[in-house]
Protein backbone atom coordinates (compact mmCIF):
# COMPACT_ATOMS: atom_id res chain seq x y z
CA UNK A 1 0.00 0.00 0.00
CA UNK A 2 1.50 3.28 -1.15
CA UNK A 3 1.48 5.84 1.70
CA UNK A 4 1.05 8.77 -0.68
CA UNK A 5 -1.93 7.06 -2.22
CA UNK A 6 -3.42 6.44 1.23
CA UNK A 7 -2.82 10.06 2.20
CA UNK A 8 -4.48 11.25 -0.99
CA UNK A 9 -7.50 9.10 -0.33
CA UNK A 10 -7.69 10.25 3.28
CA UNK A 11 -7.44 13.88 2.22
CA UNK A 12 -10.21 13.42 -0.32
CA UNK A 13 -12.21 11.79 2.47
CA UNK A 14 -11.70 14.81 4.70
CA UNK A 15 -12.90 17.16 1.96
CA UNK A 16 -16.00 15.08 1.20
CA UNK A 17 -16.51 14.65 4.93
CA UNK A 18 -16.71 18.40 5.44
CA UNK A 19 -19.58 18.58 2.96
CA UNK A 20 -21.23 15.64 4.74
CA UNK A 21 -20.61 17.55 7.94
CA UNK A 22 -22.46 20.61 6.68
CA UNK A 23 -25.41 18.43 5.69
CA UNK A 24 -25.42 16.77 9.11
CA UNK A 25 -25.03 20.15 10.78
CA UNK A 26 -28.44 21.05 9.43
CA UNK A 27 -29.94 17.93 10.99
CA UNK A 28 -28.14 18.53 14.25
CA UNK A 29 -29.21 22.16 14.56
CA UNK A 30 -32.84 21.23 13.89
CA UNK A 31 -32.76 18.45 16.46
CA UNK A 32 -30.88 20.56 19.01
CA UNK A 33 -33.50 23.31 18.94
CA UNK A 34 -36.79 21.86 17.77
CA UNK A 35 -36.18 18.37 19.23
CA UNK A 36 -37.60 16.84 16.08
CA UNK A 37 -35.59 14.35 14.09
CA UNK A 38 -35.82 15.30 10.43
CA UNK A 39 -36.26 11.98 8.69
CA UNK A 40 -36.58 13.81 5.38
CA UNK A 41 -33.14 15.34 5.62
CA UNK A 42 -31.41 13.38 2.88
CA UNK A 43 -34.38 13.80 0.59
CA UNK A 44 -34.10 17.56 1.03
CA UNK A 45 -30.42 17.21 0.20
CA UNK A 46 -31.22 15.48 -3.09
CA UNK A 47 -33.82 18.13 -3.94
CA UNK A 48 -31.10 20.76 -3.48
CA UNK A 49 -28.79 18.70 -5.69
CA UNK A 50 -31.41 18.49 -8.43
CA UNK A 51 -32.03 22.22 -8.06
CA UNK A 52 -28.33 22.89 -8.62
CA UNK A 53 -28.28 20.56 -11.63
CA UNK A 54 -31.36 22.19 -13.15
CA UNK A 55 -29.97 25.70 -12.61
CA UNK A 56 -26.77 24.59 -14.29
CA UNK A 57 -28.33 22.87 -17.27
CA UNK A 58 -30.98 25.50 -17.96
CA UNK A 59 -29.29 28.78 -16.97
CA UNK A 60 -25.69 27.64 -17.00
CA UNK A 61 -25.38 28.76 -13.41
CA UNK A 62 -22.25 27.46 -11.70
CA UNK A 63 -23.17 25.48 -8.55
CA UNK A 64 -21.09 27.93 -6.48
CA UNK A 65 -23.38 30.69 -7.66
CA UNK A 66 -26.45 28.50 -7.30
CA UNK A 67 -25.81 28.40 -3.56
CA UNK A 68 -27.48 31.73 -2.98
CA UNK A 69 -30.86 31.19 -4.67
CA UNK A 70 -31.08 27.54 -3.58
CA UNK A 71 -30.21 28.30 0.04
CA UNK A 72 -32.71 31.15 0.11
CA UNK A 73 -35.45 28.98 -1.38
CA UNK A 74 -34.67 26.23 1.10
CA UNK A 75 -34.78 28.62 4.01
CA UNK A 76 -38.29 29.57 2.97
CA UNK A 77 -39.23 25.92 2.36
CA UNK A 78 -37.86 24.89 5.75
CA UNK A 79 -39.62 27.74 7.50
CA UNK A 80 -42.89 26.81 5.85
CA UNK A 81 -42.48 23.11 6.63
CA UNK A 82 -41.93 23.79 10.31
CA UNK A 83 -44.63 26.44 10.60
CA UNK A 84 -47.23 24.56 8.58
CA UNK A 85 -46.54 20.90 9.17
CA UNK A 86 -44.32 20.22 12.12
CA UNK A 87 -45.25 22.83 14.73
CA UNK A 88 -48.63 21.17 15.39
CA UNK A 89 -46.72 17.93 16.04
CA UNK A 90 -44.31 19.33 18.64
CA UNK A 91 -46.36 18.01 21.55
CA UNK A 92 -47.24 14.71 19.88
CA UNK A 93 -45.36 11.49 20.63
CA UNK A 94 -42.05 10.80 18.94
CA UNK A 95 -43.33 8.08 16.63
CA UNK A 96 -46.03 10.43 15.40
CA UNK A 97 -43.47 13.09 14.44
CA UNK A 98 -41.40 10.41 12.84
CA UNK A 99 -44.28 9.17 10.70
CA UNK A 100 -45.03 12.71 9.54
CA UNK A 101 -41.48 13.20 8.32
CA UNK A 102 -41.33 9.74 6.79
CA UNK A 103 -44.42 10.70 4.79
CA UNK A 104 -42.73 13.91 3.66
CA UNK A 105 -39.60 11.94 2.76
CA UNK A 106 -41.52 9.35 0.74
CA UNK A 107 -43.32 12.09 -1.18
CA UNK A 108 -40.10 13.99 -1.86
CA UNK A 109 -37.98 11.09 -3.07
CA UNK A 110 -40.71 9.72 -5.32
CA UNK A 111 -41.70 13.09 -6.66
CA UNK A 112 -38.08 13.41 -7.79
CA UNK A 113 -38.35 9.98 -9.36
CA UNK A 114 -41.50 10.99 -11.22
CA UNK A 115 -40.04 14.28 -12.41
CA UNK A 116 -36.46 13.31 -13.24
CA UNK A 117 -36.64 9.54 -13.69
CA UNK A 118 -34.21 7.04 -12.25
CA UNK A 119 -31.21 8.11 -14.34
CA UNK A 120 -28.21 9.93 -12.89
CA UNK A 121 -27.81 13.67 -13.43
CA UNK A 122 -24.64 15.67 -13.03
CA UNK A 123 -22.95 18.96 -13.82
CA UNK A 124 -20.04 19.00 -16.24
CA UNK A 125 -17.48 21.68 -15.48
CA UNK A 126 -13.92 21.75 -16.76
CA UNK A 127 -12.34 22.76 -13.48
CA UNK A 128 -13.78 19.69 -11.78
CA UNK A 129 -11.16 17.65 -13.61
CA UNK A 130 -8.26 19.80 -12.39
CA UNK A 131 -6.14 19.08 -9.36
CA UNK A 132 -4.11 21.17 -6.99
CA UNK A 133 -0.63 19.88 -6.15
CA UNK A 134 0.41 20.09 -2.55
CA UNK A 135 3.89 18.62 -2.39
CA UNK A 136 3.38 14.95 -3.18
CA UNK A 137 -0.34 15.21 -2.55
CA UNK A 138 -3.02 15.87 -5.11
CA UNK A 139 -6.19 17.77 -4.27
CA UNK A 140 -9.30 17.64 -6.39
CA UNK A 141 -10.05 21.26 -7.21
CA UNK A 142 -13.83 20.88 -7.05
CA UNK A 143 -13.66 18.96 -3.78
CA UNK A 144 -11.32 21.53 -2.32
CA UNK A 145 -13.60 24.47 -3.09
CA UNK A 146 -16.65 22.54 -1.95
CA UNK A 147 -14.97 21.84 1.38
CA UNK A 148 -13.99 25.49 1.72
CA UNK A 149 -17.60 26.55 1.18
CA UNK A 150 -18.77 23.95 3.72
CA UNK A 151 -16.30 25.32 6.27
CA UNK A 152 -17.36 28.91 5.58
CA UNK A 153 -21.05 28.05 5.89
CA UNK A 154 -20.45 26.18 9.15
CA UNK A 155 -18.42 29.08 10.54
CA UNK A 156 -21.19 31.48 9.59
CA UNK A 157 -23.71 29.30 11.39
CA UNK A 158 -21.53 29.14 14.51
CA UNK A 159 -21.15 32.92 14.44
CA UNK A 160 -24.88 33.39 13.93
CA UNK A 161 -25.74 31.40 17.03
CA UNK A 162 -23.05 33.04 19.12
CA UNK A 163 -23.23 36.70 18.17
CA UNK A 164 -26.63 37.66 16.77
CA UNK A 165 -29.67 38.42 18.94
CA UNK A 166 -31.79 36.01 16.90
CA UNK A 167 -29.19 33.28 17.34
CA UNK A 168 -29.14 33.83 21.09
CA UNK A 169 -32.92 33.81 21.25
CA UNK A 170 -32.97 30.48 19.41
CA UNK A 171 -30.48 29.06 21.87
CA UNK A 172 -32.72 30.24 24.68
CA UNK A 173 -35.64 28.38 23.10
CA UNK A 174 -33.49 25.28 22.81
CA UNK A 175 -32.41 25.36 26.45
CA UNK A 176 -35.82 25.96 27.89
CA UNK A 177 -38.77 26.52 25.62
CA UNK A 178 -41.17 27.13 28.46
CA UNK A 179 -38.88 29.76 29.91
CA UNK A 180 -38.45 31.30 26.48
CA UNK A 181 -42.21 31.41 26.11
CA UNK A 182 -42.59 33.02 29.52
CA UNK A 183 -40.20 35.85 28.67
CA UNK A 184 -42.24 36.50 25.55
CA UNK A 185 -40.20 34.87 22.79
CA UNK A 186 -42.27 33.65 19.86
CA UNK A 187 -41.05 30.08 20.15
CA UNK A 188 -42.88 28.79 17.09
CA UNK A 189 -41.33 31.50 14.94
CA UNK A 190 -37.87 30.62 16.19
CA UNK A 191 -38.47 26.92 15.62
CA UNK A 192 -39.48 27.66 12.05
CA UNK A 193 -36.48 29.96 11.67
CA UNK A 194 -34.21 27.17 12.88
CA UNK A 195 -35.74 24.64 10.53
CA UNK A 196 -35.16 27.20 7.77
CA UNK A 197 -31.52 27.52 8.78
CA UNK A 198 -31.06 23.75 8.88
CA UNK A 199 -32.63 23.52 5.44
CA UNK A 200 -30.33 26.24 4.12
CA UNK A 201 -27.35 24.18 5.38
CA UNK A 202 -28.66 21.21 3.45
CA UNK A 203 -29.15 23.40 0.39
CA UNK A 204 -25.53 24.57 0.44
CA UNK A 205 -24.30 21.05 1.08
CA UNK A 206 -26.45 19.82 -1.81
CA UNK A 207 -25.09 22.44 -4.22
CA UNK A 208 -21.59 21.38 -3.25
CA UNK A 209 -22.35 17.69 -3.43
CA UNK A 210 -23.23 17.83 -7.13
CA UNK A 211 -19.59 18.73 -7.69
CA UNK A 212 -18.59 15.40 -6.12
CA UNK A 213 -21.20 12.86 -7.17
CA UNK A 214 -23.98 12.29 -9.70
CA UNK A 215 -27.46 12.62 -8.28
CA UNK A 216 -30.20 9.98 -8.40
CA UNK A 217 -33.42 9.87 -6.35
CA UNK A 218 -32.37 6.90 -4.14
CA UNK A 219 -29.54 9.06 -2.78
CA UNK A 220 -32.21 10.68 -0.58
CA UNK A 221 -32.80 7.83 1.87
CA UNK A 222 -29.10 7.03 1.71
CA UNK A 223 -28.17 10.57 2.77
CA UNK A 224 -30.80 10.56 5.49
CA UNK A 225 -29.19 7.47 6.98
CA UNK A 226 -25.72 8.92 6.44
CA UNK A 227 -26.72 12.15 8.20
CA UNK A 228 -28.02 10.11 11.13
CA UNK A 229 -24.85 8.10 11.32
CA UNK A 230 -22.83 11.30 11.33
CA UNK A 231 -24.79 13.22 13.94
CA UNK A 232 -25.07 10.24 16.23
CA UNK A 233 -21.38 9.51 15.96
CA UNK A 234 -20.63 13.19 16.58
CA UNK A 235 -23.37 13.79 19.11
CA UNK A 236 -26.98 14.70 18.24
CA UNK A 237 -27.38 18.43 18.86
CA UNK A 238 -23.65 19.18 18.94
CA UNK A 239 -22.56 21.45 16.08
CA UNK A 240 -18.85 20.67 16.30
CA UNK A 241 -19.75 17.00 16.62
CA UNK A 242 -21.58 17.07 13.29
CA UNK A 243 -18.49 18.34 11.48
CA UNK A 244 -16.23 15.90 13.26
CA UNK A 245 -18.62 13.03 12.51
CA UNK A 246 -18.79 14.10 8.87
CA UNK A 247 -15.03 14.06 8.51
CA UNK A 248 -14.76 10.71 10.30
CA UNK A 249 -17.33 9.12 8.01
CA UNK A 250 -15.85 10.78 4.93
CA UNK A 251 -12.39 9.42 5.73
CA UNK A 252 -13.63 5.99 6.73
CA UNK A 253 -15.67 5.69 3.52
CA UNK A 254 -12.67 6.76 1.46
CA UNK A 255 -10.31 4.34 3.16
CA UNK A 256 -12.79 1.48 3.47
CA UNK A 257 -12.23 0.77 -0.21
CA UNK A 258 -8.62 -0.08 0.55
CA UNK A 259 -9.35 -2.66 3.20
CA UNK A 260 -12.72 -4.12 2.27
CA UNK A 261 -14.64 -4.20 -0.99
CA UNK A 262 -15.97 -0.74 -1.89
CA UNK A 263 -19.55 -1.94 -1.98
CA UNK A 264 -19.29 -2.82 1.72
CA UNK A 265 -18.06 0.62 2.74
CA UNK A 266 -21.34 1.77 4.25
CA UNK A 267 -21.41 -1.41 6.31
CA UNK A 268 -18.47 0.13 8.04
CA UNK A 269 -20.45 3.32 8.74
CA UNK A 270 -23.39 1.37 10.13
CA UNK A 271 -21.05 -0.72 12.23
CA UNK A 272 -19.60 2.50 13.62
CA UNK A 273 -23.11 3.79 14.31
CA UNK A 274 -24.03 0.63 16.20
CA UNK A 275 -20.85 0.82 18.26
CA UNK A 276 -21.32 4.48 19.13
CA UNK A 277 -25.01 3.98 19.99
CA UNK A 278 -24.09 1.19 22.36
CA UNK A 279 -20.97 2.57 23.95
CA UNK A 280 -21.50 6.31 23.89
CA UNK A 281 -25.11 7.03 22.91
CA UNK A 282 -24.68 10.76 23.42
CA UNK A 283 -22.07 10.74 20.62
CA UNK A 284 -18.41 11.61 20.69
CA UNK A 285 -18.91 15.31 21.49
CA UNK A 286 -22.44 15.21 22.87
CA UNK A 287 -23.53 15.89 26.41
CA UNK A 288 -25.47 13.30 28.37
CA UNK A 289 -29.13 14.24 28.40
Amino acid sequence: MDPVNVANLALAGVLTGLVYGLMALGLSVIFGVVRVVNFAHGEMMTIAMYAAVVLFTTLGLDPFLAILPVALAFFVLGYAMQAGLINPFITRPEHSQFMLLVAVAIIMVNALLVIFGPGARSVQLDYLLESIELGPLLLDRGKFYAALVACAASAALFAFFRYTPTGRAIRACADNWLGAKVVGLNVKHYYAFTFGLGSACVAIAGCMMVLLVDVTPPLGPYYTLLAFVIVIVGGLGSMAGALLGGVLIGVSEALAGLFITPSAKSMFSFGLLILVLLLRPQGLLGRRP
Binding site: M99, I107, V114
Partner: peptide, 18 residues
Protein backbone atom coordinates in the same frame (compact mmCIF):
# COMPACT_ATOMS: atom_id res chain seq x y z
CA UNK B 1 -44.16 6.72 -14.13
CA UNK B 2 -42.06 5.00 -11.51
CA UNK B 3 -42.69 6.55 -8.12
CA UNK B 4 -46.26 7.72 -8.63
CA UNK B 5 -47.61 4.98 -6.40
CA UNK B 6 -45.16 5.86 -3.64
CA UNK B 7 -46.01 9.54 -3.81
CA UNK B 8 -49.54 8.46 -3.22
CA UNK B 9 -48.45 6.26 -0.29
CA UNK B 10 -46.75 9.27 1.19
CA UNK B 11 -49.81 11.46 0.78
CA UNK B 12 -52.12 8.91 2.41
CA UNK B 13 -49.71 8.54 5.28
CA UNK B 14 -49.43 12.30 5.64
CA UNK B 15 -53.19 12.75 5.75
CA UNK B 16 -53.64 9.93 8.25
CA UNK B 17 -50.95 11.08 10.68
CA UNK B 18 -52.21 14.64 10.50
Amino acid sequence: FPGVKQVFYGLVLLVVVM
